[in-house]
Amino acid sequence: MNRPLSQNSWHYRELNARTPGLDHFSNGLFRLLDAGHPVVAGSADLQFSNGLNRFAERHPERYIQFGISEQNMVSVAAGLATTGMMPFVATFASFLGLLACEQIRMDVAYCAQPVRLVGHHTGISMGFYGTSHHATEDIGTMRSIADLTIVSPADGPQFEAAIVASADHDRPIYFRTGRGREPALYDAQKPFVFGKAIEHAKGEEITVIACGMPVYPVVQAARRLNAAGRSVGVLDMATVKPIDRDAILEAAASSRMLMTVEEHNVLGGLGSAVAEVLADEGIGRKLIRHGIRDEYALIAPPTHLYAHYRLDEAGIEREILAAIGG
């Protein structure tokens, strides 16, 4: 029997809490529409979880509610793209990047349709919803699909800026976003550049390369360490594919070691992408990959999981100190 959620339960608070970061999804679409772009949007019964409810209320004629049919949603988006529309479709990353992988590969990427795929609540951000809802393999899956750009914004404003920048991008994009609770690090009005890393600091001892949710805690940890006399560099690798090879090689040349931090399996994700660049170029630089270490994540509130896997500020700071000695 299904019981109503207690107002004291974590599930109730999570589902009904205000998530201002989600507003940036619709804000980006509004900006594209105001500029004259033929935007349409759709979701698999999750418009209140991803913020598309605001878009649906303002432009109901441009919104499609697909229900729980993620694979069909992706195929329909590919069809809409063939008519000249600019489709954005969104659902949980675990369902989009994994369940709909075949449709993304064949209907979108293989056919070179400029569909914007938005996988939200990435990594372990679904917490208690468990393994079926955790998305710790989607970067690896999507990265192996040819001609598919992958963007993992650090916060809502960066996501909005990337949405606006996608107007000039004629290939399919997989946006990997959080749950709208990420602290703001960027300004939505700052132009986003696909394929270009954002440097927050240079470091001689180590350069930490991160994407998505971990970027903010990495920046905060590096600021504290640098203030204490250490030398820690930070790169936000928001575009995971195509990756900024020049930024990686420059960091390898100026730092004694590199570290990647991601809310993803350390196999197949950002860490693997950086390792491939170093191997391709024959760079003998130590690389530490920090994230989910090839396991299924535990089930708990996201804050507890971030602390357990050392993906919060304190945990990341400890990982950096363990690497550089201190």
Rank of each mutant, 00 (worst) to 15 (best):
Y296W: 10
R176N: 03
M142K: 07
F194H: 09
L225F: 00
A247H: 05
G127K: 03
L5D: 03
E137D: 09
H59Q: 06
G271W: 04
I288N: 08
F55Q: 01
G51D: 00
A167Y: 04
N50V: 13
E61W: 06
V232Q: 02
G21T: 03
H134W: 06
H24V: 03
T82G: 05
E204P: 11
T149V: 13
R105T: 10
S144G: 12
A273D: 05
D138C: 01
N265C: 12
S49R: 10
F48Y: 10
F48V: 10
I64W: 14
G130F: 08
A81Q: 05
E276C: 10
V261N: 06
T136N: 05
A100M: 02
A154N: 03
T303I: 12
E199R: 13
H59V: 12
G79C: 00
L311F: 03
R289E: 00
A35Y: 05
R54Q: 07
M259A: 05
F95W: 06
D138T: 11
E313R: 11
V151R: 05
Y129L: 11
S144W: 00
L258T: 07
M126C: 14
T141A: 13
A300S: 11
M213H: 12
M126Y: 13
G97M: 09
I324S: 02
V240A: 00
E102P: 14
L5H: 07
A197I: 08
N226H: 04
V39F: 03
G284A: 15
Q158T: 05
R293E: 07
I316F: 07
V40M: 10
E70T: 13
L305D: 02
H290F: 00
Y306V: 08
F159G: 03
A162S: 15
G97T: 11
D23F: 10
E70M: 09
V240T: 04
V261M: 03
L22G: 07
A90M: 03
Q189D: 14
T303P: 14
T91N: 11
K190D: 15
E137G: 01
I316Q: 05
I150Q: 02
R285V: 12
R58K: 13
H37C: 08
F192W: 07
T149M: 11
R245V: 14
Y306G: 01
A323E: 01
G156K: 01
I124F: 08
I292G: 00
F55R: 10
G291T: 08
N2Y: 04
F192D: 03
V277C: 06
R289I: 05
I288S: 11
A273V: 12
H290P: 13
R318Y: 02
V164I: 15
M126A: 10
E262L: 08
L99T: 11
L15V: 10
R293T: 15
R285N: 02
I104S: 04
E70K: 12
Q7N: 13
G284C: 15
Y216W: 08
L29E: 05
G36P: 15
E102H: 13
V215N: 00
K202F: 02
L15C: 02
A161C: 10
Y174D: 06
A297M: 08
D168R: 15
R13L: 09
P301T: 07
G203K: 09
L321P: 14
S272N: 14
K202Q: 11
L249P: 07
T122R: 01
D107W: 14
P183R: 04
L117E: 03
H121D: 14
L99C: 12
S254G: 11
I68E: 04
V219L: 00
I124L: 06
F194S: 10
E205Y: 14
F48G: 12
D23K: 15
F95H: 07
